[in-house]
């Protein structure tokens, strides 16, 4: 048998989601009985592209 990839596992196990962005999506998942953690997302580094570029290299 081939080994199971993360995709295979996704299709075989209940959805346990991390939601970034529109909170409705988290509510929707919750209403369907799926597990979900909503991330209170804000633009990284206040959206400053120079700082984001630096962070991407060092974080």
């Amino acid at each position: 048998m081939e080994s199971k990839t993360a995709i295979d596992k996704l299709l075989a196990t209940p959805v346990a989601a991390i939601n970034l962005g529109v909170e409705d999506f988290a509510d929707n998942l919750e209403s369907q009985g799926a597990w979900v953690v909503h991330v209170n997302w804000t633009p990284p580094a206040g959206g400053d592209p120079e700082i984001i570029a630096i962070l991407d290299k060092i974080l």
Binding site: K9, L10, A17, N19, V22, F25, V36, N40, W41, T42
Partner: peptide, 25 residues
């Protein structure tokens, strides 16, 4: 919860990220 890391601490068995943040991010 403000980061994926924290979300994973809360729900270690997470198998999916649902992302709807603005396109540039």
């Amino acid at each position: 919860v403000r980061t994926i890391d924290q979300a994973l601490t809360q729900q270690p068995d997470s198998n999916l990220a649902v992302i709807s943040v603005p396109g540039e991010f």
